[in-house]
Design a protein around this nucleic acid. Sequence first.
DNA 1: TAGTGGTCTAGACCACTCT
DNA 2: GAGTGGTCTAGACCACTAC
Lengths: 239, 239
Amino acid sequence: MAEAYYLHVTDKLRDVLLTDDTAWVNDNGKLPAERELAQRFETTRVTLRQALAQLEGEGRIHRSNRRGWFVSPKRLEYDPTRDAGFNDYVRDQGRLPRTEVLSVSTSSHPPAAKALGLVADQTFYHIRRRRYVDERAVLVESLWVVPERAPGLLDERFDFSLWKLLREKWNLRLSHRSISMVSEALQGADARELGVAAGTAGLNICRTILDGDQRPVEYDEEHWLHDALSIRVELKQHR
Amino acid sequence: MAEAYYLHVTDKLRDVLLTDDTAWVNDNGKLPAERELAQRFETTRVTLRQALAQLEGEGRIHRSNRRGWFVSPKRLEYDPTRDAGFNDYVRDQGRLPRTEVLSVSTSSHPPAAKALGLVADQTFYHIRRRRYVDERAVLVESLWVVPERAPGLLDERFDFSLWKLLREKWNLRLSHRSISMVSEALQGADARELGVAAGTAGLNICRTILDGDQRPVEYDEEHWLHDALSIRVELKQHR
DNA sequence: TAGTGGTCTAGACCACTCT
DNA sequence: GAGTGGTCTAGACCACTAC
């Protein structure tokens, strides 16, 4: 086999995506319909979709609900060790941030308790948010905050920086204990809330946050679209 | 649509993978043939493969060449900010490491030069290696070392820790300047050398290394199988 | 050589979005 | 209501692996 035909289609599409040819990508960044593309390449939808899946894996295109395939915007550069708020670093990169609060409740969450070194049935304030860059939903996150650190927190608004709130209102000095990152396939509520198909590639980032006295404050679980971010950690020189 | 059938197949397979039922997974961790599985689920290979692709995205199974589908082993925990050698941290987790040197040469590499703040046509020692965990190839990497920092480096052996070599023979004190991580689809040589299909999900990790006097030493580009690792960064408390 | 995964065809119906 | 992506069928041939 010289080369699979779908790889040829992939290469051709990758090329045209780098141009702004309106024959291939309209003004909204949308590609032609799958049937249309299949015709142009004189193949079937199955084969054409293999090529699209490749480009999706490369983070070049993505699909939104059943609306079609779109060119993916530039990845957001994200340093999970920095405590700059989402809104700040998105704006710093010339993009438009937005945060939606999906739910607020009180509940236990054993993984959070374990990460923070608390008993498994520890009760947390649970805040769930969806965050957008340029009006594209790029992540959903769940925050579990230890109530003792921020009594009455749930009366606040959460569509801006939680860290700023904790610092200013509860005078907490926050720092990371650990961060873990693992690739995942977005499932269930995570996929639904991001408007993507179950199984879409994602990145799961979990952070454990302590205060200045090393007391547990918060556990944070983020589910990102894999093509929405590029992680970059700048390290201080030690020794 | 209540639920797509392939998602039902996915769920069922996910369940049996958690058991050690030899009706589904043989002693080598291999699943039955696709045609066999399709028959058991009374569906076609296309639909069955959708389910397998889901589980592959979740990092639960993977394919090796054309040999079939295998249960993926536990992810390796990896802290890219630590300077512990690959061999050390793999063994610390009770696994068996192995390193293969694929090529050694002298060449320029503009991305490395840029990251290290050198002129684009800077010449580097280029070392390419493939690394295994329990005899599964999990990453390929390219190292670009600034020759001035380690003259004569290419006469050494590279199947063990490069850092140890640089420390002991050239007396370099090494530290990270930056680390970047981005999801990718493994392509070309990277995919071939890992024995996976083009487009397989991967993780690209790039590191910039300086010496104690902040002089550029090395640029490191790693391509991992996405299901082979879990990144975990433990942070020192600052302030 | 037999069996496997990799690729591909030529259709079909459904659920959802858009207008 | 038209068009789209999502799902599915029932086959086929090829290249490669394992024996």
